[in-house]
């Protein structure tokens, strides 16, 4: 995006400019960790080499820069560090991808109001796919149960506990609309959230300082905050991850729907699209004239929500 200021930054990135200084800091950091490790070993002879490694990796992770400004090599080092840390912490392997945006791709989404019946399979699939905090029951998708005869979100109900579809109602899902002119990225003081070239609005969870200005700026309630330590049972962790997507988060950072970047950039549909039993959800490339999405935009009467705010959401609704 043009708003992006490509100043190489982040302590790591600054240090990167002058190799000798960087080496000096790395050596100093290494020496410190080694010293601490030595102290620890002296105190408890059984202390594993693993805990030393963990301390070293956490130390390095603390000083990592903004993901968007990293070189390919730095990105690789960063995800390897995270993978290793997960293995040290849990004994399980995860794969954290760094797949970049492809040329000629701009993702978009269409939602068929006539078909959705409020089954919530999308919500369940989303939580499982994206490793969302189970403790706070975090959800990226909200299904609003509207009363027939009006499309008023104020009058709609998004927490209903009865058999669906309920008579006299229709259903509408909201999530991040991946605006092409997003107010949330503009307000971020550290550029920890941004619009990718393929149209995905993503967050660097390691760079976010947790000020929550983006949550205040979003007119669609798309963003979620980790108020406490996020909890995902180890056996339920989806090991197929992306740095900007469903990798495990920590407390105090903002997260959101990424159109399942770990799937979409590998040519798959997001989990919500795949899980929907009614076919209400269509995901695709807006720049591909043969995509289903483009067919819908061309042949259906589509609309978007809160267009008056000029956010240019890439999420359309339509009816059959």
């Amino acid at each position: 995006m043009s708003e992006f200021n490509p100043n190489p930054s982040g302590l790591h990135q600054i240090l990167n400019r002058q190799v000798d200084r960087r080496t000096a800091v790395a050596t100093a950091a290494g020496a410190l960790v080694a010293g601490l490790g030595l102290l620890q070993t002296a105190c408890s002879p059984l202390a594993a080499a693993e805990s030393k490694e963990k301390a070293q990796l956490n130390w390095e992770a603390f000083f990592q820069g903004n993901y968007r400004l990293m070189t390919h090599k730095e990105k690789d080092e960063t995800v390897h560090r995270l993978e290793r840390l997960h293995a040290l912490n849990t004994g399980n392997q995860v794969r954290i991808g760094t797949t970049a945006a492809k040329e000629g791709v701009l993702y978009g989404y269409a939602f068929n109001i006539s078909k959705c019946r409020g089954y919530m399979d999308c919500v369940k699939a989303c939580i499982a796919e994206n490793n969302q905090d189970r403790k706070s029951d975090m959800r990226y998708i909200r299904i609003h149960e509207h009363n027939k005869g009006q499309m008023s979100f104020e009058a709609a109900e998004d927490s209903f506990y009865h058999e669906v579809p309920a008579a006299g109602h229709f259903y509408m899902g909201t999530q991040c609309f991946h605006c092409q002119n997003p107010p949330c990225t503009q307000v971020c003081p550290t550029q920890a959230t941004w619009l990718e070239p393929d149209g995905l609005v993503v967050v660097d969870y390691n760079w976010c300082i947790g000020c929550r200005y983006c949550i205040a700026a979003c007119p669609y309630d798309a963003r979620r905050f980790n108020w406490g330590d996020p909890q995902v049972p180890e056996e339920e962790v989806n090991p197929n991850q992306h740095y900007l997507g469903n990798r495990l988060r920590r407390k105090g950072v903002v997260e959101k729907c990424t159109f399942c970047i770990q799937r979409s950039r590998d040519g798959k549909n997001p989990a919500c699209v795949e899980a929907c039993p009614t076919g209400s959800r269509t995901f695709g490339n807006l720049l591909d004239p043969d995509s289903d999405l483009r067919w819908i935009l061309k042949n259906k009467k589509v609309f978007r929500l809160k267009e008056d705010l000029g956010t240019e959401p890439k999420f359309w609704y339509y009816m059959d």
Binding site: Q186, A192, G210, N226, V253
Partner: peptide
């Protein structure tokens, strides 16, 4: 403001020159 931060240890990310300072776009 510091009390309200989710990651006060990462506040250095907002220090100009050391972190990434999203000026002038962000009013913060």
């Amino acid at each position: 403001v510091v009390a309200d931060m989710g990651g006060p240890d990462r506040l250095w990310h907002v220090i100009p020159m050391i972190g990434v300072f999203n000026w002038p776009a962000s009013m913060l």
